[in-house]
Protein backbone atom coordinates (compact mmCIF):
# COMPACT_ATOMS: atom_id res chain seq x y z
CA UNK A 1 0.00 0.00 0.00
CA UNK A 2 1.52 3.30 -1.10
CA UNK A 3 0.17 6.60 0.11
CA UNK A 4 0.47 9.50 -2.32
CA UNK A 5 2.75 12.30 -1.22
CA UNK A 6 2.39 15.98 -2.01
CA UNK A 7 4.43 15.82 -5.21
CA UNK A 8 2.45 12.93 -6.65
CA UNK A 9 -0.84 14.54 -5.56
CA UNK A 10 0.07 17.76 -7.38
CA UNK A 11 1.20 15.84 -10.45
CA UNK A 12 -2.05 13.88 -10.67
CA UNK A 13 -4.21 16.92 -9.96
CA UNK A 14 -2.47 18.89 -12.71
CA UNK A 15 -2.83 16.05 -15.18
CA UNK A 16 -6.51 15.68 -14.34
CA UNK A 17 -6.08 12.03 -13.43
CA UNK A 18 -7.27 12.88 -9.91
CA UNK A 19 -9.79 15.66 -9.25
CA UNK A 20 -10.24 17.46 -5.94
CA UNK A 21 -11.64 20.78 -7.04
CA UNK A 22 -11.56 23.67 -6.31
CA UNK A 23 -8.44 23.96 -4.19
CA UNK A 24 -8.48 27.45 -2.76
CA UNK A 25 -5.15 27.70 -1.00
CA UNK A 26 -1.68 26.27 -1.34
CA UNK A 27 -1.88 25.08 2.26
CA UNK A 28 -4.78 22.82 1.36
CA UNK A 29 -2.36 20.23 -0.02
CA UNK A 30 -0.47 18.68 2.86
CA UNK A 31 2.52 16.36 2.82
CA UNK A 32 0.32 13.35 2.02
CA UNK A 33 -3.28 14.58 2.13
CA UNK A 34 -5.64 17.26 0.85
CA UNK A 35 -7.85 19.30 3.14
CA UNK A 36 -11.57 19.31 2.41
CA UNK A 37 -13.99 22.15 3.05
CA UNK A 38 -17.60 22.14 4.19
CA UNK A 39 -20.22 22.67 1.49
CA UNK A 40 -23.57 24.44 1.83
CA UNK A 41 -26.03 21.72 2.78
CA UNK A 42 -26.52 20.10 6.16
CA UNK A 43 -28.64 17.08 6.93
CA UNK A 44 -29.27 17.02 10.65
CA UNK A 45 -30.19 13.60 11.92
CA UNK A 46 -33.24 13.73 14.18
CA UNK A 47 -35.19 11.09 16.07
CA UNK A 48 -38.57 12.55 15.01
CA UNK A 49 -40.69 9.86 16.58
CA UNK A 50 -38.58 6.91 15.47
CA UNK A 51 -37.61 4.56 18.27
CA UNK A 52 -34.73 2.96 16.38
CA UNK A 53 -33.29 2.18 12.98
CA UNK A 54 -34.46 -1.24 11.85
CA UNK A 55 -33.37 -2.97 8.63
CA UNK A 56 -36.80 -4.67 8.58
CA UNK A 57 -38.21 -1.35 7.32
CA UNK A 58 -35.61 -1.29 4.55
CA UNK A 59 -36.52 -4.81 3.50
CA UNK A 60 -40.22 -3.98 3.51
CA UNK A 61 -39.80 -0.80 1.45
CA UNK A 62 -37.57 -2.61 -1.06
CA UNK A 63 -40.37 -5.04 -1.81
CA UNK A 64 -43.04 -2.32 -1.93
CA UNK A 65 -44.31 -0.91 -5.20
CA UNK A 66 -44.92 2.42 -3.47
CA UNK A 67 -41.43 3.66 -4.15
CA UNK A 68 -42.27 7.29 -3.33
CA UNK A 69 -43.52 6.34 0.11
CA UNK A 70 -40.48 4.15 0.55
CA UNK A 71 -38.23 7.07 -0.32
CA UNK A 72 -40.03 9.34 2.15
CA UNK A 73 -39.78 6.65 4.77
CA UNK A 74 -36.05 6.47 4.31
CA UNK A 75 -35.59 10.21 4.59
CA UNK A 76 -37.83 11.06 7.48
CA UNK A 77 -35.04 11.12 10.01
CA UNK A 78 -33.09 13.88 8.26
CA UNK A 79 -33.79 17.59 8.26
CA UNK A 80 -32.17 19.36 5.32
CA UNK A 81 -30.86 22.90 5.60
CA UNK A 82 -29.11 25.07 3.04
CA UNK A 83 -26.44 27.12 4.75
CA UNK A 84 -25.13 30.17 2.85
CA UNK A 85 -21.49 31.20 3.17
CA UNK A 86 -20.88 33.31 6.29
CA UNK A 87 -23.74 31.51 8.09
CA UNK A 88 -23.08 29.01 10.82
CA UNK A 89 -24.67 25.79 11.91
CA UNK A 90 -24.21 24.19 15.29
CA UNK A 91 -23.28 20.58 15.88
CA UNK A 92 -24.44 19.74 19.37
CA UNK A 93 -22.80 17.12 21.59
CA UNK A 94 -24.15 13.70 20.69
CA UNK A 95 -25.68 14.85 17.41
CA UNK A 96 -24.83 13.79 13.88
CA UNK A 97 -24.76 16.08 10.84
CA UNK A 98 -24.15 15.02 7.25
CA UNK A 99 -22.49 17.68 5.12
CA UNK A 100 -21.07 17.63 1.60
CA UNK A 101 -17.59 18.76 0.80
CA UNK A 102 -17.26 21.93 -1.23
CA UNK A 103 -14.82 20.02 -3.41
CA UNK A 104 -15.84 17.75 -6.25
CA UNK A 105 -13.90 14.50 -6.29
CA UNK A 106 -13.09 12.20 -9.15
CA UNK A 107 -10.89 9.24 -8.47
CA UNK A 108 -9.10 7.15 -11.08
CA UNK A 109 -9.38 3.37 -10.93
CA UNK A 110 -6.06 2.95 -9.15
CA UNK A 111 -6.68 5.23 -6.16
CA UNK A 112 -8.64 4.85 -2.98
CA UNK A 113 -9.37 7.77 -0.65
CA UNK A 114 -9.65 7.87 3.13
CA UNK A 115 -11.35 10.81 4.82
CA UNK A 116 -10.67 11.83 8.39
CA UNK A 117 -11.12 14.93 10.53
CA UNK A 118 -8.32 17.46 10.62
CA UNK A 119 -6.55 17.05 13.93
CA UNK A 120 -7.26 20.65 14.99
CA UNK A 121 -10.97 19.97 14.87
CA UNK A 122 -10.67 16.46 16.29
CA UNK A 123 -9.16 18.05 19.38
CA UNK A 124 -12.30 20.14 19.74
CA UNK A 125 -14.35 16.95 19.75
CA UNK A 126 -15.37 17.02 16.09
CA UNK A 127 -15.30 13.54 14.70
CA UNK A 128 -15.82 12.49 11.12
CA UNK A 129 -17.59 9.38 12.13
CA UNK A 130 -17.78 6.86 9.36
CA UNK A 131 -17.78 6.41 5.59
CA UNK A 132 -14.13 7.20 5.52
CA UNK A 133 -13.52 5.32 2.32
CA UNK A 134 -13.90 6.79 -1.15
CA UNK A 135 -13.75 4.07 -3.77
CA UNK A 136 -11.84 4.09 -7.05
CA UNK A 137 -13.78 5.79 -9.90
CA UNK A 138 -16.03 7.66 -7.50
CA UNK A 139 -17.19 11.07 -8.68
CA UNK A 140 -19.11 13.67 -6.73
CA UNK A 141 -18.93 15.34 -3.36
CA UNK A 142 -17.74 13.40 -0.34
CA UNK A 143 -20.16 13.17 2.54
CA UNK A 144 -18.70 14.18 5.87
CA UNK A 145 -20.49 12.61 8.80
CA UNK A 146 -19.82 15.03 11.60
CA UNK A 147 -20.34 14.09 15.23
CA UNK A 148 -19.55 16.22 18.21
CA UNK A 149 -17.83 14.14 20.88
CA UNK A 150 -17.09 17.19 23.04
CA UNK A 151 -19.01 18.88 25.82
CA UNK A 152 -20.29 22.02 24.09
CA UNK A 153 -21.77 22.81 20.64
CA UNK A 154 -19.39 23.51 17.78
CA UNK A 155 -20.22 26.23 15.23
CA UNK A 156 -19.18 25.47 11.67
CA UNK A 157 -19.24 27.65 8.57
CA UNK A 158 -19.39 26.52 4.92
CA UNK A 159 -15.99 26.84 3.28
CA UNK A 160 -14.02 25.88 6.39
CA UNK A 161 -11.42 23.12 6.18
CA UNK A 162 -12.51 20.46 8.65
CA UNK A 163 -11.50 17.20 6.97
CA UNK A 164 -8.69 15.76 4.96
CA UNK A 165 -8.40 13.01 2.41
CA UNK A 166 -5.41 10.77 1.81
CA UNK A 167 -5.02 8.53 -1.22
CA UNK A 168 -3.48 5.11 -1.51
CA UNK A 169 -2.69 3.22 -4.69
CA UNK A 170 -4.83 0.15 -5.30
CA UNK A 171 -3.46 -2.90 -7.02
CA UNK A 172 -5.41 -5.21 -9.26
CA UNK A 173 -8.85 -5.03 -10.78
CA UNK A 174 -11.18 -2.50 -9.11
CA UNK A 175 -14.29 -2.74 -11.28
CA UNK A 176 -17.43 -3.10 -9.18
CA UNK A 177 -21.10 -3.02 -9.94
CA UNK A 178 -22.31 0.49 -9.04
CA UNK A 179 -21.75 1.98 -5.60
CA UNK A 180 -24.65 3.66 -3.86
CA UNK A 181 -23.54 7.26 -4.15
CA UNK A 182 -21.84 7.76 -7.50
CA UNK A 183 -22.15 11.30 -8.89
CA UNK A 184 -23.47 12.54 -5.57
CA UNK A 185 -24.30 16.23 -5.31
CA UNK A 186 -25.23 16.25 -1.65
CA UNK A 187 -25.55 13.84 1.26
CA UNK A 188 -28.46 11.52 1.44
CA UNK A 189 -29.40 8.59 3.51
CA UNK A 190 -28.08 5.23 2.41
CA UNK A 191 -29.61 1.76 2.42
CA UNK A 192 -29.10 0.07 5.74
CA UNK A 193 -29.81 -3.30 4.19
CA UNK A 194 -29.39 -4.65 0.68
CA UNK A 195 -30.77 -7.69 -1.10
CA UNK A 196 -28.01 -9.94 0.09
CA UNK A 197 -28.80 -8.94 3.69
CA UNK A 198 -32.49 -9.80 3.35
CA UNK A 199 -32.16 -13.55 4.05
CA UNK A 200 -30.94 -12.62 7.53
CA UNK A 201 -33.67 -10.09 8.28
CA UNK A 202 -37.14 -11.21 9.33
CA UNK A 203 -40.04 -10.05 7.16
CA UNK A 204 -41.79 -8.21 9.98
Amino acid sequence: MTMLGRGELIRRLREGNLVVSPLLSKAQIGSASIDLRIGNVVLMVRARGSSHVDPVAAKRSASSRKSHEAELGRQQKHERYEIPFHSKFLVHPGSLALVPTLEWLQLPDDLHGSVTARSTWAREGLSIATATFIEPRYQGIATLELANMGQIPIALYPGMRVAQIAFVRVEGQTARIGGQFRMSFEPRQGRVADKDDFPFIPSS
Partner: peptide
Protein backbone atom coordinates in the same frame (compact mmCIF):
# COMPACT_ATOMS: atom_id res chain seq x y z
CA UNK B 1 -17.47 16.45 -20.85
CA UNK B 2 -15.55 14.90 -17.95
CA UNK B 3 -18.52 15.11 -15.57
CA UNK B 4 -17.01 17.99 -13.56
CA UNK B 5 -18.60 21.25 -12.43
CA UNK B 6 -17.55 23.96 -14.92
CA UNK B 7 -15.15 26.21 -13.01
CA UNK B 8 -11.67 27.53 -13.77
CA UNK B 9 -9.55 26.37 -10.83
CA UNK B 10 -6.14 24.88 -11.56
CA UNK B 11 -3.00 24.59 -9.51
CA UNK B 12 0.53 25.36 -10.58
CA UNK B 13 3.60 23.16 -10.09
CA UNK B 14 4.04 24.00 -6.42
CA UNK B 15 0.36 23.57 -5.65
CA UNK B 16 -0.63 27.24 -5.68
CA UNK B 17 -4.22 27.67 -6.90
Amino acid sequence: TRGLPPILADIDQDGTP
